[in-house]
């Protein structure tokens, strides 16, 4: 690993953010001494219930909000530093864009603002549109887009300048299962090229599939952070899978329990998730 790669992509320490709400200076603590780091090249999931401070944390990482206290560094640089943002792509939650531009004009505009060299702008724009499946609708004005299309064009604008770090705040909100899977593929492709991805999502199945590490927040506090194995594996319990030949009847379960002293809490059939079902049956040919 080179020296450059050892610098964490994101490093936040004791980050606290208070919002002033109401007239009498009442404060709401949206993030409460949050600390975690995201290494380069990993896919990192930031999870938690609504209002737990995920978006607030991401906005501070991007320098869009000033932290009340604590520090945040991106690739070793202060997040208030504007220049470092040319290495970041960001999709805010519920994005809203210039309605009077066409999708293609919009992505091109963001490519320019991200510092893509003039001769590569067209190419990068078309790649980003193709990646998010928006090529067909790219000539239409953004005002006419559906919610999911807005979200897709948002992902396109976040990836158009091929950033080293992509921060996606609920990229799959309002997107159909096939589109979600495509975004998942895009994230995997980024990872395979050594990029870092921070993902905030309520699609836990997808998080499980994609993320190397996760951090879970609740009421502004970090509850747990670690690899999926560390967080999810319940070392105390086992799950046995019994092959097709053996019928596990209630009598047999009872026998095993009493005679052999096995502690069987319950027996269930494995089932596929609804998401899986959608993917397997409705996938584009």
């Amino acid at each position: 690993m080179s020296e450059e790669n050892r610098i964490p992509a994101i490093e936040i320490e004791n980050l606290t953010k208070d919002f002033r709400v109401g007239m009498r200076g009442v404060k709401l603590r949206a993030a409460d001494s949050v600390s975690f780091r995201v290494e380069q090249g990993e896919v990192f999931g930031l999870l938690g219930p609504n209002g737990s401070g995920k978006s607030t944390t991401l906005k501070i990482i991007l320098g869009l909000l000033r932290p009340t206290s604590g520090s945040c560094r991106i690739f070793g640089k202060n997040s208030a530093d504007v220049a470092v943002r040319s290495r970041i792509g960001f999709l805010p939650e519920a994005p809203y864009f210039y309605g009077y531009l066409s999708g293609r004009e919009l992505v091109k505009y963001y490519a320019r603002m991200s510092g893509v060299p003039a001769e590569k702008i067209d190419e990068c724009t078309e790649d980003a549109l193709a990646l998010t499946g928006m090529t067909d609708a790219a000539a239409r004005r953004v005002k006419t887009y559906s919610k999911g299309m807005l979200q897709r064009i948002g992902v396109a604008q976040a990836m158009v300048h091929d950033p080293d770090l992509v921060i996606l705040d609920e990229p799959t909100a309002g997107i159909d299962p096939i589109g979600s899977a495509e975004i998942g593929d895009a994230i995997r492709a980024m990872k395979s090229r050594g990029k870092t991805v921070v993902l905030c999502s309520h699609l836990l199945g997808q998080i499980e599939e994609l993320c190397d590490r996760v951090a879970i927040m609740n009421r502004g506090k970090l509850v747990v952070a670690g690899t999926l194995d560390e967080v999810l594996t319940q070392r105390g319990k086992q799950l046995a899978v019994i092959g097709a030949g053996t019928q596990l009847t209630p009598e047999l379960v009872e026998k095993l329990r009493e005679r052999d002293g096995l502690n069987i809490e319950s027996v269930s059939h494995p089932r596929i998730s609804l998401e899986r079902y959608f993917l397997e049956n409705l996938k584009r040919k």
Binding site: L62, A83, F90, L91, P92, Y110, M113, G154
Partner: peptide
């Protein structure tokens, strides 16, 4: 208000 500015200011734009 619509937070279009958010996307723009997340770019290297002062």
């Amino acid at each position: 208000e619509n937070r279009t500015a958010l996307t723009m200011l997340a770019k290297p734009v002062r």
